[in-house]
Design a protein around this nucleic acid. Structure first.
Lengths: 382, 382
DNA sequence: GGGCTAAAGTTCGAGACATGAACATATTAC
DNA sequence: GTAATATGTTCATGTCTCGAACTTTAGCCC
């Protein structure tokens, strides 16, 4: 009989219930900071005593912070609880086509410090990671010893293999088939940056989707993010979860055929969405007529998304949106109404990302936070 | 302070752990019948004693059955456990365009008895339900008193509103805006059919997708089912869950625009997928050329699905497939390869439904079973 | 056939944990 | 100042899982 490590996947055992409740409390306070112990108990259907114990544990570990007393009427005032904004930080990294970025975020996703770095053409992967680590080191300087770096996520414009953190293909960087997550791990070690939860590598459209979903104003179940840049990609949040598909390629709409007789695409086919809707297409024809044609094709794409996935919100972002978003949006909305099912077009909102150029990196932070909170489920604490 | 009913949504309280473990055992035995207590314990990471207690409870309630001893080598032989195939049945109903169908299935999805009924044009909803209930009554006759009817699901070719069980629109039946689930409840009461779990109303493509996913040979996470009939619809199983979208309209691909200059569609737009890929299109041009054109357009649609969702399997079913499936399949595969991303086209299988005309109704049974097992989580037992 | 080994399933005491009632605490209302 | 009210804590109780010891039932070997 093989030696059997404590089965990690499944259900019960010592501490499962406690972990479940820890996780519930953390998740609830993440979404709705400022609740009191009593409110948590009511909300979660737990006994007040149980919540008190769990909260005490989490306070002890530095995960929660007790706020001021909140005089709310008759009776003893309650004490607001929230994730400790000071003690717990995550690093978000972004490699974009023409810049690198680092952000230090707290558990609420708020940016505490950040830095952007120029990036020349034909960047070297190892050098990029070095610069990111270097910049992070500086941002972390002088933060005090009671501050924990809870997680890290790197957002890249390319196809990521989710299991091992390989970067399969990043055409706009000229990279392919890199063990990027492994390299990242080595750089962190070299630069003496200790992260509690294993680092994460993720596609830029996916982090952006998760970021907008989490930090945006919409409390919805299904959201699609369209990343309009040199190429065209998308990230999907379905039933409140980031959707990867079976091989991590979900959302690759850049090469959906919109017109089999259309112009040739770098992928070898003709009339891919990317040939109509992208920075490249805009550069080729930056006129009002070009804009209208682009919006029309974008409408076709939106119709596919709306009819197939019935989302609450579709968010447009990326460099092209930075450039012409406000002009593009009304045309795209009209085109979507023209092509999509009436119900879908009526119920779904189409909006621009409220976070501009920072959308993807904010989402990377969110992903790191989620991974950390997830890991807390079965953790023995800090 | 308002009177507070035992919070149903959330976590813990008396018996939560036990319910979790009950649910785990049931789910595991559903997917892999014949496991022993020991194997379950190993599989789930539970103590043998715990599994024994839970299993004893479930045996008591008639949910599980203990099989013969399985001599497997040295040591005391184990006893196979499985969901009790005899004592627990569900009803699956289907209203199709030209027939009604009833199936009595056990918890493994196997059909024990069934009946098909002819259906004339312009069917009356109430009469349909009456005939279904009547037929069910006969199928149930003489089943013994220790047999429980655990659930019921009705599959319909139309748009369903998930919350209240309204049938919003079923163009091919000429029905719209019917409180079909409520009517169904009344009919059951009239015909003295007692079902333990609340009946379910679901779109035909969705039940079919779930059925193929569950009863098919593929053990996958993501599957799309295309229903090719008078119209064109699809059902999506994403991350092992049936996907509805935000308003229950996910998968409505019949009116995705494939060619803005195409023929007019009954929906008022031009060049909808349905105008190219459907029984109607085939009837209009049942030639080799027509077949090739249809396959080409189907390829466009498949490319959208494959690129956007990265599924493991796409299953084709419905009346059109019954008629020309084997001729259509190779052409559709070729077209998909022509239009989809290479990776997606290579990794995803495109197949015909192995269950033919019964795909949707088998899936309805599966949905009823899942609902019942789900309800067992917090149930106090039969 | 008898003893040994191996595996399945059961029994039982110990420990973890959620619960609810009683209690302490802090505020408003009068 | 006293009553009312709500928050948060303490503690005895009961549920449930766990692991170790034990029973049962088989194969293996002499």
């Amino acid at each position: 009989m093989p030696a059997r490590i404590r089965s990690a996947n499944s259900s019960s055992g010592t501490g499962v219930l406690r972990n479940l409740n820890r996780s519930l409390v953390l998740k609830t306070l993440w979404q709705r900071p400022g609740l009191s112990r009593s409110e948590l108990a009511r909300e979660l259907g737990l006994a007040k005593s149980t919540v008190s114990v769990v909260v005490a544990e989490l306070l002890e570990e530095g995960l929660l912070r007790e706020g001021e007393e909140m005089p709310g009427g008759v009776g003893r005032p309650s004490r607001a609880l929230e994730l400790d904004r000071e003690k717990n930080l995550v690093l978000a990294w972004e490699i974009s086509v023409d810049y690198l970025a680092v952000r230090l975020q707290n558990l609420m996703g708020e940016v505490r410090r950040g830095q952007d770095l120029e990036l020349g053409p034909d960047p070297d992967p190892s050098a990029c990671l070095d610069r990111l680590a270097q910049a992070s080191r500086e941002l972390l300087r002088g933060l005090g010893h009671s501050v924990y770096l809870r997680g890290l996520c790197l957002s890249v414009p390319g196809l990521v293999e989710p299991q091992h953190g390989h970067l399969t293909l990043a055409p706009n960087l000229g990279w392919q088939d890199l063990p990027l997550l492994e390299m990242l791990g080595h750089k962190l070690a070299q630069h003496r940056i200790r992260v509690e939860t294993p680092p994460i590598l993720e596609n830029e459209a996916n982090t952006a989707a998760l970021g907008v979903y989490t930090l945006g104003e919409w409390r919805v179940a299904n959201l699609a993010y369209l990343s309009l840049g040199i190429g065209l990609g998308s990230g999907l949040v379905l039933d409140r979860q980031l959707f990867w598909g079976s091989h991590g390629h979900a959302g690759e709409i850049g090469h959906v055929p919109l017109d089999p007789q259309g112009p040739p695409c770098r992928c070898g086919k003709r009339g891919c969405a990317e040939t109509f809707v992208s920075l490249k297409a805009w550069r080729a024809d930056p006129t009002e007529a070009g804009l209208e044609r682009m919006a029309d094709k974008l409408g076709l794409l939106l119709a596919q998304l709306l009819n197939l996935l019935d989302p609450d919100v579709v968010v447009l972002g990326g460099p092209l949106v930075e450039e012409i978003g406000p002009r593009l949006l009304p045309l795209a909305r009209a085109a979507a109404r023209r092509y999509a099912l009436e119900q879908a077009a009526r119920t779904a909102q189409i909006v621009l990302s409220p976070f501009g150029r920072d959308t993807a990196i904010l989402g990377a932070g969110v992903l790191a936070i989620r991974a950390f909170l997830e890991a807390q489920r079965s953790g023995v604490g800090a």
